[in-house]
């Protein structure tokens, strides 16, 4: 039997973690515009393409990229991301994002999973700085590497449904861009062999929320005094977040699985310090 951290009993946060898939499913229903009111002047906090026939809100990354191409400051998108990020950090990734939910579902298919090296997480910042901000700013939205032209969520949620609907409607089929479909194909294939490849390696929204993990009101706290090196938290973490044993790690999606170990707890800034010394 694996050794456990001292005084281990299943806390509320870990019990909640068992309901994560249901919470993700419930939020998916929200993003899929059940009432048919398209509020595309409002940014959602999640990665969900606004060209999806069922998208309720605008995608914040699409708005950032397009405003960068227009040379405008996206106050609404930035404000939305900062407010949500500072309040809960990457809980959005783990509990709310529909594209993350899809990756979680595919990840449950029993195939051998490979752990990606931690440094690959910096790829998200490269994508954010280049494809979302720099390329649109300097080359406009016509550039083939403009983020929306390669976005796998756009391929899945907008390009493929649109192609299918035109095909079924008898109109001439407009094929999606080959680059976009290639990126989607690669990400989809990777979902079978590693947990959340898009989130951990490429997602620019995850990069923003990852940064917010350092300052968010809610955070996961690691208590060194309670740790007896049982390694449980590392084994519970699928996303390389707590492998560094730091609750505010930028790669953490706050699935809260690691809180099954009593050395990691869910906390907030008014309750305790981020780190124990």
């Amino acid at each position: 039997m694996a050794p456990m951290a001292k005084g281990n009993s299943i806390p509320l946060s870990a019990r909640l973690a068992r309901w994560r898939a249901w919470v993700q499913g419930a939020f998916l229903l929200v993003w899929l515009d059940p009432l048919g009111v398209r509020l595309h002047m409002v940014c959602s906090p999640v990665f969900h393409c606004y060209s999806c026939p069922l998208a309720l809100f605008a995608c914040p990354i699409g708005v950032l990229a397009n405003f960068s191409a227009l040379h405008l400051v996206p106050y609404v998108a930035l404000g939305t991301l900062v407010v949500i990020g500072v309040l809960v950090g990457s809980f959005i990734c783990g509990w709310v994002c529909p594209f993350g939910f899809l990756q979680d579902l595919i990840g449950r298919i029993p195939t051998r999973k490979f752990e990606l090296p931690g440094w690959m997480g910096y790829g998200r910042y490269v994508v954010l700085a280049s494809l979302v901000l720099a390329i649109p700013y300097f080359f406009g939205e016509e550039h083939p590497l403009f983020f929306c032209r390669v976005c796998p969520a756009g391929a899945l949620e907008a390009a493929l449904p649109h192609t299918a609907s035109t095909a079924m409607g008898g109109a001439g089929i407009v094929w999606p861009s080959a680059v976009k479909m290639a990126v989607f194909g690669l990400v989809l294939a990777a979902m079978f062999f590693t947990w959340r490849p898009w989130c951990t390696v490429l997602c620019p929204l995850g990069a923003i929320y990852g940064l917010c993990n350092r300052v968010s009101f809610l955070f996961l706290k690691f208590h060194p005094a309670r740790c007896n090196d049982c390694d449980l938290c590392r084994r519970l973490c699928r996303y390389h977040g707590s492998s560094e044993r730091r609750g505010d790690d930028m790669r953490c999606i706050r699935c809260m699985e690691c809180t099954r170990c009593s050395a990691v707890t869910l906390s907030h800034v008014f309750e305790s310090e981020r780190r124990e010394v």
Binding site: P74, L78, G79, V82, V83
Partner: peptide, 28 residues
């Protein structure tokens, strides 16, 4: 406690201000 929350509070205020400015005032 308040000092510990100072950075998140300042960022939160900044985010709300940005959101409010974008909604109410920003035009192009």
């Amino acid at each position: 406690r308040i000092l510990r929350a100072a950075v998140p509070l300042v960022l939160l205020a900044g985010g709300i201000a940005s959101l409010a400015y974008g909604v109410a005032r920003h035009t192009a």
